[in-house]
Each structure stands twice: as structure tokens, then as C-alpha cells.
Design a protein around this nucleic acid. Structure first.
Lengths: 191, 191
DNA sequence: CGACAGTTGTTGCGAATGCAACAGATTATA
DNA sequence: TATAATCTGTTGCATTCGCAACAACTGTCG
């Protein structure tokens, strides 16, 4: 655990992190996550190994941050903060998560099941935040603690069920799957 | 004229120069050479403008080095040092230069005529060196001063005639052109 | 078992880069 | 013409990065 604090706005820092991420993505296309070494990443990124450790604790922290950032970017394209908590929005979230799992698994080859647990926490935090923002805006008469609880439950439900959809067969498209589970979710979450 | 001496083997230096060159090539595809500023290049390369000046005196030095390096790489693929001074080799050199002019002009859009003079000197130095090496190896009985003279004359002839071929119509292919001018060159240069 | 090669984090120090400000030159605009 | 805006090189100082070496750990081979 080093991470000598660097200024994240320094252009050198921005560039270095991008080099690391680009190298990492490139290597993920060729090798298993577990056979990629920090040396590999550093070489590919044309940076020194010590510099890697100035930015990330280890390669788990790297994939963690990378997949979290990917999810945030991905999700914000589909569900913006001005959405309302309609069935359509919930569907969008379900579909987004399905597609996110698909993409991540493809990117990480056959290692996604091993990697997902490292990232799961961040994704859920972000997802819950998104859902909570929509709820707060949409249900101004309900107290926030209750909304937090509801957002938490909805988040875990959707994450869990889409994760399962992904590692199992994926016999349906995300769209079909979303339509199928929406009645189940509606039972409790929507007024 | 700054160029605070940097160690050309330092990986940061290698990377920075590559970033500058990549940015430059990219911009050359969009803008005229003369409307590209050092600021443009620096921004595109994600480096500081002051860093640019640590590597190149100005943008002329940049295109100079870039085109020279391109030529050297290009020429060495076609004429290696083990060639003999045959008509075939001369033809290869002529064709190489034609194609080099073509590529450079395409890269620099309609500015090649203005840029070429900056680069011409380096190209000719390199070309003369290539030709001289072949001559020395091939004519061991002739003294070196005479060979230098011959290499110099041959270099300027070929450079000049191919440059002209390029800026004028280019009604013939490099191959046809090489075949056409070879008899003229042969008159004096080949035994 | 021991020897070996490779990976992981960590450190101090020197070199490269970023920043902000500057004067002077060039170019755009009114 | 004037006057603002932009670009050019240059500088001193702060920060980041590369290097080389290190101990600790892992896996492999005989």
C-alpha cells in the first residue's frame, strides 16, 4: 500500500493513468487477467514499474477502477439524472447492467467470474447512487432513509439478477429479460 | 535555441518525442503546416509547450527530423548496405526517392514545396552516405576523395530530377521514370 | 530438500516534465 | 493606424517519473 499521493489533475498523471489503462485493456485481449503481471502492464504502457505502484496499489485496484469507471460512463449514457422512476427507467437500468456484464466478461475473457467480486462493490455503490438520486427527485414526500432503503434493495436485486443472467445461459436478450423480470420488481418497488 | 540536453535513451524522452511526432502527423492531416502552432502540437501531444522546446528548436526542426527519419527508414527498406552499384540499385534509389517525394507531399498536403527545402539538406546527406558506402565497398581501387565527389554528384542529380518529377506532372510511374533517366545517368557514373 | 528464476512492493536520488510568468514578435480586428 | 489578441522562446521552481537496488514471497526443476 504505497500510492505516494499524486495530484490527479497533473497532466502527467492523467497521461500516465491513461497509458496504464490502455496497456491493460490491450493485454486483457491477449491474456488471462491472472497471468498479466505488473511488469507486463508497465512495459506495454512504456512506464516504469515503480510508477505503476504510485498510481495503483496492485493490479486488482487497477481492474477495479477500470471496470467501475467503464460502468459509470456506460450507465450515464443510458440513464441520466433527469430520468423519472418509471418502468421504462427501471428497464433501462436492467438492460444497461446486462450489457455491462456482457461487455466486461468479453473484455476479461473467461476470468470475469473471478474478477467481478472485486468490482461488484463499486458498481453497486454507483448504481445505488444513481437510483437514489432519481428517487429523491421523484418522491419528494417520502423521507430519505426510506428511500435509501428502497434504493439499496432495488440495486441489489437488479445487480444480482443480471449477474445471474450473464453467467448462466443468457437465453434471452437483455430487452426480453428486462420485460420478464419487471413484473416481479414492480410488485414492491413501484407505487 | 534552447534544447536543454536530454538523454535520448531515457524512456520518458522516447515517449515524449513519439507523442510529439504522432500529434504532428495527425495535425498535418488536418491543417497546413504553416497554420499548425507549437501550442497545437503540444496540446494534441498532451505535453507542455515548454517541453516541446526541450526537444525541438521549433516546428521546422520537427518536420525536418520527422521527414529525414521517414526517409531513412523508407530507403533502408529498399536499398540495403550490401547492394552493389549496379543499374538495378540506381533504379531502386530513383524509385525510392520518387515515392518518398510522393508520400511526403501527400502527408504535407499542398505545403510540400515550402517544406522540402528545410528537409532537403538532411535527405541529401543521408542519400550521399548510402551511395558512398556502396561505392567504397564496390570500387576498392579508387581513392575515397574521388568516390566522395562521384557520390555527391550522383546524389544531387537524383534528388533534383526526382524532385522535379514530383512537382511537375508525374505523367510516368516511378518505375517508368527511373528507366527513362537511367541512360542519362549511366553516361558518366557507371563504368 | 536446496538452488534457481521470476514477481512483488518499497525506497532514495537524479532526470524529465509541468507551470506560470515574461518580453518580444506576429497577426487579427476595428 | 492603433490596439487587442495570439504566438514564440525562455526561465526558475515544483512535481512526477525512471532507475537501481532491496527483501520477501512463489513456483519450478533436479
Amino acid at each position: 500500500m504505497t500510492i505516494t499521493e499524486v495530484n490527479p489533475n497533473d497532466p502527467r498523471v492523467v497521461r500516465t493513468r491513461q497509458l496504464i489503462i490502455d496497456a491493460f485493456v490491450d493485454l486483457l485481449g491477449k491474456k488471462d487477467f491472472y497471468s498479466i503481471t505488473v511488469s507486463d502492464i508497465s512495459k506495454q504502457a512504456t512506464i516504469n514499474r515503480a510508477t505503476f505502484y504510485a498510481h495503483f496499489t496492485d493490479k486488482f485496484a487497477l481492474i477495479d477502477r477500470f471496470l467501475s469507471a467503464s460502468f459509470i460512463e456506460f450507465a450515464h449514457k443510458r440513464v441520466n439524472q433527469y430520468s423519472e422512476l418509471t418502468e421504462e427507467t427501471i428497464q433501462s437500468i436492467v438492460i444497461t447492467l446486462c450489457e455491462y456484464h456482457e461487455i466486461s466478461q468479453k473484455l476479461c475473457r473467461r476470468n470475469y467470474e473471478a474478477i467481478a467480486p472485486h468490482v461488484e462493490k463499486n458498481i453497486k455503490v454507483e448504481l445505488e447512487h444513481m437510483i437514489l438520486q432519481i428517487m429523491i427527485k421523484d418522491c419528494k414526500d417520502t423521507d430519505e432513509d426510506t428511500l435509501r432503503l428502497a434504493a439499496n434493495i432495488l440495486t441489489w436485486s437488479i445487480y444480482g439478477v443480471t449477474y445471474r443472467w450473464n453467467i448462466e445461459k443468457r437465453s434471452e436478450t437483455p430487452q426480453q429479460f428486462a420485460e420478464k423480470i419487471l413484473p416481479i420488481l414492480r410488485g414492491g418497488f413501484l407505487d
